[in-house]
């Protein structure tokens, strides 16, 4: 069995902080407790760490890739907000971990010909701050909505992409921005794939590869991220809409999150509404177009059921109809706010 941990201060120490009398007086078993005994009642965890676990803490992206290549069974971990939940519930038992928290090169961002190169290790908390919000407002809004403070302090942009949960709040924003991922591979190799390709499974990460950076265009125009949740406090999205304006190309780009395994792009609705906007006149639009856009987006993302054999169109279940109404309201509000 695993060797015991740091020199044990003994169970007597434990019991000083207990208001029951020391239970250690019953010496009915002789073997030492597994996992070692740590000081203080608060130090006791339900899930004692596995003593044999290997943790690597590389300082650069290439070292991290090398560590992953050297030990293919190792799992990279950044914020750990998803990974550790799986470990704690017993669904995942990583043989080794490669911690990405010390790679300073991916914890900030830099500018590159009209784009921002965001490090995958940027936390939601960092992205939520005003200086970042001035650059990419929708991503900042999504980061602020991404959970309670302790999750936002730990969770990262790269982790949000790698987990690819349907409710990942950054994902619709990245889809609407048509972001590109820069993947670090063995031997210093770098390749680029569009974020939608990874989310849709068109291209996958290969063994030893890590998401290094996310390249996002700087559009210098209003962007909106709206999210409907079940409660007022932080919660998983029932539906979310990210909408960005691209005034240089006179385009509107919109992505709907949480209602499908990956963010959905209503391309026809985007093109249709972009022509209705008077780009030269303060981006004016008739209010009816907002409503129509919302419904266009909702119908594109949540289509009617296919007609039955007798030609009748079956009704969608009430919960799905409500979801469609929610998406329509979010898309309408998002466009309205972006153009106001």
């Amino acid at each position: 069995m695993p060797p015991s941990g740091p020199p044990s201060s003994g169970p007597a120490k434990m019991c000083q902080s207990c208001h029951v009398r020391p239970v250690g007086t019953y010496r009915t078993a002789t073997q030492a407790g597994p996992g070692g005994q740590r000081e203080g009642a608060a130090g006791l965890t339900t899930h004692a760490p596995q003593a044999a676990q290997a943790v690597t803490l590389p300082a650069t992206l290439d070292e991290a890739v090398a560590a992953l290549t050297a030990m293919p069974a190792a799992v990279p971990v950044a914020g750990g907000t998803d990974l550790m939940t799986a470990v704690n519930s017993g669904q995942l038992r990583p043989a080794a971990l490669v911690g990405l928290g010390r790679i300073s090169e991916i914890r900030g961002w830099q500018y590159q010909d009209g784009h921002a190169l965001l490090g995958a290790g940027l936390t939601h908390a960092r992205m939520g701050r005003p200086d970042f919000a001035a650059l990419i407002p929708a991503l900042a809004a999504a980061s602020r909505a991404a959970g309670p403070p302790h999750i936002r302090n730990a969770g990262t942009l790269g982790g949000n992409i790698a987990t690819a949960a349907p409710t990942g709040d950054a994902l619709p924003v990245l889809a609407a921005l048509e972001a590109t991922l820069i993947i670090a591979g063995p031997g210093g190799a770098r390749r680029e794939i569009p974020v939608s390709h990874l989310l849709a499974g068109v291209e996958l990460l290969r063994a030893g590869e890590l998401i290094g950076y996310v390249r996002v265009p700087l559009l210098h125009a209003p962007q909106v991220f709206l999210k409907a949740t079940g409660r007022t406090g932080p919660g998983r999205a029932v539906a979310s809409v990210a909408l960005v304006l691209d005034p240089a190309r006179r385009g509107v780009r919109c992505a709907v999150g949480a209602i499908a395994p990956m963010p959905l792009r209503p391309l026809e609705a985007e093109q249709w509404v972009a022509q209705l906007i008077d780009w030269d006149n303060n981006r004016a639009i008739v209010p009816e177009a907002l409503t129509a856009f919302g419904e266009y987006v909702a119908a594109a993302c949540i289509p009617d059921a296919p007609p039955a054999e007798d030609g009748s169109v079956p009704q969608l279940p009430p919960a799905v109809l409500h979801l469609r109404r929610t998406v329509a309201a979010l898309a309408r509000r998002a466009l309205g706010r972006a153009l106001s």
Partner: peptide
């Protein structure tokens, strides 16, 4: 302060 011991914080030597 988080020092109050709850049932999950108890320990006995050689416990299973």
């Amino acid at each position: 302060e988080g020092t109050f011991p709850y049932a999950a914080d108890l320990w006995a030597e050689g416990l299973l």
